[in-house]
Design a protein around this nucleic acid. Sequence first.
DNA 1: GAATGTGAAGGTTTTCACAGCA
DNA 2: TGCTGTGAAAACCTTCACATTC
Lengths: 207, 207
Amino acid sequence: MKKVSESTVRRLSRYYRVLQVMEKEGEATISSRELAQREKLTPAQVRKDLSLFGSFGTRGLGYGVKELKERIAQILGLNRTWRVALIGVGNVGSALVSYKEFAKQGFLIKLLFDSDQRKIGKNHKGFLIKDVGDLVRDLKENQIELVIIAVPADQAQKVVDQVVKAGVKSILNFAPANIKVPDHVFLRTVNMAMEIEHLSFALVNLI
Amino acid sequence: MKKVSESTVRRLSRYYRVLQVMEKEGEATISSRELAQREKLTPAQVRKDLSLFGSFGTRGLGYGVKELKERIAQILGLNRTWRVALIGVGNVGSALVSYKEFAKQGFLIKLLFDSDQRKIGKNHKGFLIKDVGDLVRDLKENQIELVIIAVPADQAQKVVDQVVKAGVKSILNFAPANIKVPDHVFLRTVNMAMEIEHLSFALVNLI
DNA sequence: GAATGTGAAGGTTTTCACAGCA
DNA sequence: TGCTGTGAAAACCTTCACATTC
């Protein structure tokens, strides 16, 4: 497989969403032109992206909606479920527990952790909140494959180190902190303040 | 000013955070090498980014921490405060109300809106929840400059249309929906499901 | 005829490498 | 000497254009 860029992966997610809608609407096929139009891209871009993973269109016709959707699901790892743990049941953490899109795409939250003694042992939206001190053991025992971090910035590195120790290879981090992980671990940080700074930059400079 | 790429803006936010830390640590100067090291970038990248906005380093020495921080704050529009409204006080919305990083960088939430009659008029973390039906009037009256959308996907476009009507030029959207805005309005969408899909892609393909 | 798949072209971003200055 | 600022080179990404296939 050729090198797949970050932007291609992001666009695949977008194509996948379009295809979910198309399928519901009962469309059988879609052309690169139409797919591009819906996402404000060029048809060539769509074809290039898809061609990285093989050729599954039909010349003169387009792509089979159901078929393409399943192929992208397979590429993105959405044709299965993932066992997820969420660490930090504060404001952001509890929002993520209830975030429907995760479960919809197969990311199933199995465990919640917190370090606050007042929360540990309590029930939160149907989950027992566990002690972050038992992180390594519990992640292993429950075969967690993916972890979401929503702890305060100053605790994030410490928690991530434990997660790595437990053998988890993929981490989605919401803590506004600069975290280090070994090369074999994938870390993605979502910093909402940085997103809003993009907007103020635009207001200040581009208007 | 030369064209500033999306990635440059994102890196400026990262530099800004490093500089905040450096300043607290009492460092007077920082070199492109050191700044790069902290963010896993190349020194050349740092210098190119900064040079887009003028030359404010000293050859042989580096950049003045305080000076550079203030310059970046100015570029990103962080040397002032912004009047923000948040629409949709559900799970994600209430997490964002309490998200400290926004206020820390000068993004002050002034108004909350919801469409749920049971929430309207209630107090939420010190804010009166207003009726989304009065959006246009209230945004104007309160001189809101920036809006955060955290409503369900199927209501997002309708709400955004109102926000645009009220003359707001910058929107941060957390609804998992494909939203259209006129060219003069900046829209940034954060889709947390797409972020996690990046991780499953990595797990499936790159390990 | 219609639309894919893909080399080649064009454009953008990153890195190199070094002149220039403290 | 040490580090910035910046043209030039390299790498990367997107678009073009067309041969190919249904």
